[in-house]
Amino acid sequence: MTVQITVTVNGQPYTRDVEPRLLLVHFVRDELALTGTHWGCDTSNCGACVVHLDGTPVKSCTVLAVMCDGQQVTTVEGLERGGELDAVQKGFAECHGLQCGFCTPGMMLTARWLLDRDPDPDEGRIREAISGQLCRCTGYENIVRSVRWAARQEAGRRGADQGRADRGGADRGGADHGGAGRATGEGTHEGTRA
């Protein structure tokens, strides 16, 4: 038995005939060749396979592709916009948020979701958000710093936008300068939020 499904992945609709037992992680990796989503423990523990399903992170090793018919999926390949990396991706690059990189796509997708709901999370909030995801390099300190970096950068950008609106576009406002995260560490309140 196969079932025809149409799933919109990173904004592009894909129609495929799938076996009902096909897991979402294998659908995106094997059917769509989007191998940025990693396939890890297979038991919904490690979080390497996290994707957004209708905007919410889920562990795609424990979701059937057939259940996603008509829904929106975002994978790590969909984080960048118009060739520009998302602030979370930049944060992981700036703050050495990855070593082997296996957990990174899932970590970044959960971080993106967290920042969309809570633009200024402290270390505790970040650690809670990624508590269902394992970094086998145990690089959590830098993952937390990376998310904080992204939060500061986006706060700075919002501040700059507000500044331009207030001052007729003449001022960059409180725009953040990237590398500060490495010096100040996580969980601090740097006053970059204008």
């Binding site: 992170p57 562990k59 424990t62 809670e128 269902g132 995801q133």
Partner: peptide, 9 residues
């Protein structure tokens, strides 16, 4: 209960 991502589903 479980973790935030599992709780989403």
């Amino acid at each position: 209960i479980a973790d935030p991502v599992v709780r989403n589903r």
